[in-house]
């Protein structure tokens, strides 16, 4: 379970006084919880995802993961520890352009320290409807296919938490539905929490819990 309390993130500005990017009084995300983060652009959705992902340190307040400070006193956890705990999906599918889909998944598996399992990688791609396209480069695929490949990559490891930043914003309705289905199914199967930042009402309504950052109060899933 992740608990967030009195979380503030500010950034220095050229004018002098720091800019407050995020202010959250409290937030609780249970194991297997599914939460939609909402709010307009600039409300701090991406900043909150970065803080929950351990990519950034809060200016004040704290995030505790199963009672322990996250991302820890050192500021940043080792990359592999974080990558095993937290999976990311972005609005723009961030596949490595020089590698085939299969090699993208193989590279991710290697970085996670997973044993080589070609069959497992192909099975993940088949699961997201990309069977037979293993050898294609990201540039040879549609945006929807690339996003599904990014989800397949996240499915390589049972992450405790998957953070998705507007994962359907650039997709057509059919692909958006597919990607969302995959993310929600993955969360259920692995009992990992899923937090999706979105301003799409069709996405919001698929989530049992929502947290609107404009309210600056508290929430949970």
């Amino acid at each position: 379970m992740i608990t967030v309390s009195r979380l503030v993130k500010t950034y220095p500005s050229p004018g002098g006084s720091p800019i407050t990017a995020l202010k959250v009084d409290w937030l609780v995300i249970k194991d297997a919880g599914q939460l939609a983060l909402t709010g307009p652009s600039g409300s701090g959705k991406s900043t909150l995802l970065a803080l929950l992902g351990g990519v950034e340190r809060p200016t004040s307040g704290e995030i505790r993961w199963d009672g322990e400070d996250w991302p820890g006193a050192a500021g940043r956890p080792p990359a592999r520890v974080r990558a095993r705990r937290v999976g990311f999906v972005f609005q723009e599918p961030d596949l490595l352009p020089g590698l085939s889909l299969y090699d993208n998944l193989a590279a991710a598996a290697w970085l996670l320290g997973l044993p080589a399992n070609p069959g497992g990688l192909r099975e993940r791609l088949a699961r997201v409807g990309l069977s037979g396209r293993e050898g294609r480069k990201p540039g040879q695929l549609s945006r929807g296919e690339r996003q599904r490949a990014a989800v397949a990559r996240t499915m390589l490891y049972p992450h405790n938490l998957v953070l998705a930043d507007e994962p359907t914003a650039s997709l057509d309705g059919e692909n958006a539905g597919l990607v969302l289905d995959l993310l929600l199914a993955m969360s259920r199967e692995t009992s990992g929490a899923l937090v999706v930042a979105t301003h799409d009402p069709r996405v919001m309504e698929r989530f049992p819990a929502r947290f609107d950052l404009r309210e600056r109060g508290g929430g949970g899933a």
Partner: peptide
């Protein structure tokens, strides 16, 4: 560097309203 910079969040964060 801190944070991540996917294309849509690459701009510096703006203050919340």
């Amino acid at each position: 560097k801190s944070g991540f910079a996917p294309p849509e969040s690459a701009a510096p964060p703006r203050p919340s309203p």
